[in-house]
Amino acid sequence: MVKELERAGLPTVHICTIVPISKTVGANRIVPAVAIPHPLGNPELSKEDEKALRRKILEKALEALQTDIDTQTVFEWQ
């Protein structure tokens, strides 16, 4: 799906846990996520800290969308 969205000319960032799958599939802008059952959260954190974590990942995703790239790029936030 990521690839079809980009093919249509829509810059798309893929937030996903298993980066090798995203690379194999052909996503261009990749942001690693936290864990498979909670990619943008961590139930072990307090509500506030968890939201801050989610924000950090999304801010990285926004950065990815605003960055011109010419090849598959992983945007790390950790």
């Binding site: 990521v2 829509l10 810059p11 798309t12 937030i15 996903c16 995203s22 996520a33 990619p39 943008l40």
Partner: peptide
């Protein structure tokens, strides 16, 4: 729409 955020588990 101008940009997409796609999340995967």
């Amino acid at each position: 729409v101008q940009a997409v955020i796609l999340t995967s588990t």
